[in-house]
């Protein structure tokens, strides 16, 4: 029980921290990477809440597809900022 509670508290702290850092870190690319980390932590949280359906969807969609879309947008943004070497 105490180990499970400790894990929950740690996971909750990591969730809130990664969310806050994703928004406040100076570089957008690092923000997106932190957001992907946040998505994976959310998948863990769903597993802890006894919701494996959502955990599956979150891991594939929340972390995977959203991450791919966001990283692509960052790449586009950077290509616009620094037009080619």
């Amino acid at each position: 029980m105490t180990a499970a509670l400790a894990f929950d508290l740690l996971l909750v702290a990591a969730l809130v921290w990664s969310a806050a850092r994703a928004l406040t870190v100076a570089d957008v690319f690092r923000g997106v990477v932190l957001f992907i980390v946040f998505g994976l932590l959310m998948a863990l949280a769903w597993a802890r809440l006894g919701a494996p359906d959502i955990a599956l969807a979150e891991a594939a969609i929340g972390a995977g597809l959203t991450g791919a879309l966001l990283l692509d947008a960052v790449g586009h943004l950077r290509a616009k900022r620094e037009p080619g070497p």
């Binding site: 969310a19 923000g31 957001f35 959502i54 959203t66």
Partner: peptide
């Protein structure tokens, strides 16, 4: 920055999902 706004929107949504479940 709009990309950050989109991230924030997703975090807001994830929070709402966590509250629901």
């Amino acid at each position: 920055q709009l990309l950050r706004k989109i991230l924030a929107f997703n975090i807001l949504g994830s929070g709402a999902f966590l509250i629901l479940v």
